[in-house]
Design a protein around this nucleic acid. Sequence first.
DNA 1: TCAATTTTTTAGATAAGGCTAAATTATTTT
DNA 2: AAAATAATTTAGCCTTATCTAAAAAATTGA
Lengths: 218, 218
Amino acid sequence: MFSLSEENYLKAIFHLETAYKTGVSTNALAEEMQTKASSVTDMVKRLSDKDLVNYKKYQGVKLSEAGKNAAIEVIRKHRLWEVFLVEKLGFNWDEVHEVAEQLEHIKSEKLTNELDKFLEYPKRDPHGDPIPDSKGNFSVANRVLLSDLEKGETGICVGVKDSSVEFLQYLDKNRISLGKEIEIVEKEDFDQSMLIKMDGNELRISNQISTNLFIKTI
Amino acid sequence: MFSLSEENYLKAIFHLETAYKTGVSTNALAEEMQTKASSVTDMVKRLSDKDLVNYKKYQGVKLSEAGKNAAIEVIRKHRLWEVFLVEKLGFNWDEVHEVAEQLEHIKSEKLTNELDKFLEYPKRDPHGDPIPDSKGNFSVANRVLLSDLEKGETGICVGVKDSSVEFLQYLDKNRISLGKEIEIVEKEDFDQSMLIKMDGNELRISNQISTNLFIKTI
DNA sequence: TCAATTTTTTAGATAAGGCTAAATTATTTT
DNA sequence: AAAATAATTTAGCCTTATCTAAAAAATTGA
């Protein structure tokens, strides 16, 4: 079994690896983990001793097969608990992250799998992120950013890239939620802001918003 | 907030205090915590610095009001999660302890209270132990041990004192569960074993069994 | 009561995980 | 290609929670 700290590092490395499709630098990992580079070096050595990562001095770090499996297991638990909190306990999607960060470290294979069953094997968490199944398989999304759509195109909102409380509350305030159909009425060349149409209403959104919304085109 | 270790100590002190209605000795606490007396002394000093316990050298330890509240909160969470595991995820009553030991440390008042609501404010956990409400109030049991009943008396099984896997599995094997009506057919003076009647069948049980079953007389 | 025994505390170590400051290696710039 | 800058690692220290061994206090019992 892995310690809480080890699991958090593995998860962070996994996220950086998939986001940038490259080895992860010490500094990037320190930034992600909100800690110091020297602490990262220490931990990365320990993970390397346990063969959870491949690490060579000054050359960053990559997850091994075992490390990747461990990271995916943590992510699976995190996302299942998020579904539980929203679907069963009535949490809002901006309230679940912190609690799921704790719940994701509970060690019990039976618990994870029974929870999965209880939730009827959800495919996505409340932010639209895919939930790995018990074998670690992700349903890979074919989704694009709203900012990639052109004037006249239409799509369905299927996920958020940024899942900070602030962004999620902005979306709530503007009635944007997963499943909503969005049409690009106008796209401003100067600042990339967009006028969109949703539920028959028009709404102007900045580039910072449209680059954080995942869309499935129809 | 308290560390995992602090919470476990507070819980252990609470259990020993209520079981023996007296201050808790270093050795007793070491035994309960499966650790060494010297480790207990260290921790007890830390708890005392935080005013969670009252401690004087060589005189054992007692929970302060704050310490008692913290302990009850952990116990509340433990027992609510046990109900969740059994009622919602289909765990058996001998499988829940280990997982609940982890879940009891999750910090989120909202989570605890929403879980309580989701479970419809259960009064007792799967072993018959009372669940404190959000204010920390226990429904105190008026229950006796099966071993206290005399020949001819009848009662309903309402809880177990020992909730080890072994004992619980023994009970399952013999179809003894909470809510069952039990009649004392015969009581053996020599070894205190009993012949009991349950569901129309007779069963002989040892003193070790009857001193670990809580009964409500009718 | 005073010696023997038991209980509890102190002292000194250890391991995980983190920090700061200094040293070292890589990468850019000129 | 040397100098400047950035990234990374090392060294040494801190905290929490644990341990063993030894010392001290409390209790028991002859």
